[in-house]
């Protein structure tokens, strides 16, 4: 088992930037695929509120990664998947 490193800048930047990306993409997937779809009345506010727990959650837990590089790879990968899904929704559902 490798040692968990501090890597403040690497992990922190991954948490803040990838966290925001993940918050946009996941809340976007919910907006498109969640009950009622994109145009469900009054749903847009909850869609926006979802971003706060996701973003804060990622920033808070990003220091659990063993290094900054791993944080960037995992969170970056999750972002890539989520954004592919989001753009698929925008392409096929609109």
């Amino acid at each position: 088992m490798g040692k968990t490193r501090y890597d403040w800048f690497g992990k922190g930047s991954a948490g803040v930037l990838c966290g925001l990306g993940l918050a946009v993409a996941v809340s976007g997937l919910f907006a498109w695929l969640g009950p009622g779809g994109l145009y469900a009345p009054n749903k847009f506010q909850l869609n926006m509120w979802l971003m706060s727990p996701i973003w804060l959650g990622v920033i808070s837990f990003c220091f659990l990664f063993r290094s900054g590089l791993r944080a960037w790879l995992w969170l970056g990968g999750a972002n890539a998947l989520a954004f592919v899904g989001l753009y698929a929704c925008r392409h096929f559902l609109s």
């Binding site: 925001l20 946009v24 976007g28 907006a31 869609n47 926006m48 509120w49 971003m51 706060s52 989001l86």
Partner: peptide
């Protein structure tokens, strides 16, 4: 959210 809602809406508007 109270602090950043305008920006969060703007980002969602463009991306989502």
């Amino acid at each position: 959210v109270f602090a950043f809602h305008d920006h969060l809406y703007d980002i969602q508007d463009a991306v989502v």
